[in-house]
Nucleic acid binder design. Structure first.
Length: 575
DNA sequence: TTTGCGAGCAAATCTGGAATGACTTCCAG
């Protein structure tokens, strides 16, 4: 069954946006926003709950619970429909542009009748914004820049959303009689940070039942093409999904071909040609005789070309074929190697789950250690105090005895200020098992300032991990412009690990930065930055990104046994 | 609209920088 929480959360967030645009009660808008966040991070499917059950969720009261029930029964909510009728969807789209908020969006709509990004671009070109109150040259430039950022994503969706959609399709097709194998291929299997369209492969003798089942899926909005070998659909969310049904004997060759990348495929086809062989999606063939030499598994195809199996995350033509020929492929870190998460939050700051619930979820994942790292006081909104942090530490120490296998670490996520300073004096920092430090503001400093700022944070002996180092948000905000080679060198020199933030909106560092940083001799921490129990599984995307950066478990500090991790955390700290 | 304290009503995360244009909007988490 489709998990409804994300849909309900999206609807509540939409209503909150519409309230903000129409200038309704700000507290009401915020109430809907808070409820949306709570439901998104709620571990149980809300579709199975009644109004009473829904009200058990924090920040969901009677009124919102009734609206959720209305949505679950009828697929819509009347007051949301009324608000939609008043504010065109395009106006809401305007506030997704960085630099444009609800106030200005409403002015654009009321004064100039703008109700889409395209109309806004036209108005910018005609210089029609100049005369509006509150708009100037700088605002114009900001809006243009924001639109360019949005368009860069070019219709691609985030890895996490693509994976969820693919797994729903796979679950459905795996139930069809005659399904021998079913999996995803393409850039999704290579764990690229954004996905253009989803490729699903099925191994079966007969394709027709799969093509029919695929076209009839509940989330299918439109069938683009339907044939014997391939069917393409568009989902209700506008995402294209392609299904290909392969004969079981050609599974390996097909999977290899449709996984790509194109550049990797070209590279191994060249290798085949040199061996007087021909590689296609149907198999590896002898050029002269046409005899099929390998096709059933990927391993057999690679082996016949004199190669070990190459993990999909390496298939980008970045030297993986040459390394495979030398038998020098790295032994990549896997999700099973990860022993703990070192950057997570609770509802003491901006998380939505309690300490006890987060720790329970970590234990269920089989971790041997787990760090809680709530925000520190310099992020004023979090209203952190020494007393609150110490009380949490006490609560954590008491929980520590509850689990046989899981060891809890008390940490914090510090804010790296404009000058590179962090929250709290050294004496207080010495009390933590682990300090992550991250940039959260002042992104537009000069390159020189940003570099010095990050280097200074690395030089703080209590800072052991730099969180989301570039602070980019994929498709929304570019990374900061620092001299990262200088930062990586400082990390290596000071024994500071770089985070690979596993949240699908961040994936920060990205694969290319990881490769560069590794050359400097840096260690890494793959962390989820979880704000809900449902975020802990994002670890897979972080590990996929680490693999794309060619990392082994020796490179990743949270793949180490606890004593080795502790030695790393203690380095340079005298306290 | 929700929550908490107390049984209906008050309060609800902050804070500073930047841009714009003279006080407001937007942004970061």
């Amino acid at each position: 069954m489709v998990r409804s929480n994300a849909e309900v959360a999206a609807l509540l967030q939409e209503y909150a946006d519409l309230l903000a645009i129409t200038g309704g009660d700000a507290f009401k808008a915020r109430a809907y926003e808070k409820a949306a966040r709570a439901i998104d991070g709620f571990p149980t499917d809300v579709a199975g709950l009644d109004t009473k059950g829904l009200q058990e969720i924090p920040n969901v009261g009677k009124s919102i619970a009734e609206k959720i029930v209305e949505f679950l029964h009828t697929g819509q909510v009347s007051i949301v429909e009324e608000a939609r009728a008043e504010i065109p969807a395009g106006v809401r789209e305007l506030i997704t542009i960085p630099g444009l908020g609800p106030r200005k969006a409403l002015i654009l709509h009321q004064e100039l009748g703008i109700s889409s990004v395209a109309e806004l671009l036209d108005a910018l070109d005609d210089e029609r914004l100049r005369d509006l109150k509150g708009f100037g040259e700088k605002t114009e430039a900001n809006i243009r820049h924001g639109i360019a950022l949005l368009q860069q994503a070019g219709g691609r969706i985030l890895l996490g959303a693509a994976m969820e959609a693919a797994e729903q399709v796979i679950a459905a097709l795996s139930e069809v009689t005659g399904c021998r194998r079913c999996t995803y291929a393409g850039s999704l299997r290579r764990m690229r940070e954004t996905i253009g369209d989803i490729d699903i492969l099925v191994a079966a003798e007969h394709s027709a039942p799969f093509m029919e089942a695929f076209a009839a899926l509940p989330n299918t909005a439109e069938v683009i093409v339907q044939g014997e070998k391939k069917t393409s659909i568009r989902t209700t969310k506008g995402l294209q999904v392609d299904l290909r049904v392969l004969p079981p004997a050609a599974w390996g060759a097909g999977l290899l071909y449709f996984t790509g990348s194109k550049a990797h495929n070209i590279r191994i086809r060249e290798l085949a040609v040199r061996h007087k062989l021909k590689l296609s999606e149907y198999g590896l063939f002898h050029t002269e005789t046409g005899r099929n030499l390998a096709s059933r598994t990927e391993e057999s195809v690679y082996a016949r070309l004199g190669l070990p199996w190459i993990p999909p995350t390496l298939r980008e033509d970045r030297g993986e074929v040459a390394a495979a020929l030398r038998n020098a492929l790295p032994e990549l870190v896997t999700e099973a190697d990860i022993r703990g998460d070192l950057h997570t939050h609770t509802d003491l700051t901006d998380g939505v789950a309690s300490l006890a619930d987060m720790v329970d979820a970590a234990a269920a994942r089989g971790y041997t250690y787990y760090a809680v790292t709530d925000h520190a006081p310099d992020m004023a909104m979090q209203q952190m105090t020494d007393a609150k942090m110490l009380a949490q530490r006490e609560q954590l120490r008491q929980l520590n005895g509850k689990y046989r296998k899981l060891h809890l670490l008390h940490g914090t996520e510090l804010n790296i200020g404009p000058d590179g300073e962090v929250d709290w004096p050294a004496e207080f920092l010495a009390g933590f098992d682990l300090c992550v430090a991250s940039v959260h503001s002042h992104f537009n400093q000069s390159r020189d300032q940003l570099t010095k700022r990050l280097v200074r944070a690395c030089e703080n002996p209590h800072v052991k991990i730099i969180g989301h180092p570039t602070t980019r948000l994929i498709g929304k905000r570019p990374g900061i412009d620092a001299d990262f080679d200088a930062v990586f060198a400082a990390c290596a020199r000071t024994g500071t690990a770089l985070e690979i933030n596993a949240h699908p909106e961040r994936l920060d560092l990205n694969d290319e930065d990881i490769l560069r940083a590794k050359r400097h001799g840096v260690k890494f921490a793959v962390n989820t930055d979880a704000h809900a129990t449902t975020h802990l599984p994002y670890m897979r995307y972080g590990v996929g990104t680490a693999q794309r950066g060619w990392l082994t478990k020796d490179d990743v500090i949270n793949a180490w046994p606890l004593p080795r991790l502790r030695r790393f955390l203690a380095q340079g700290r005298s306290a």
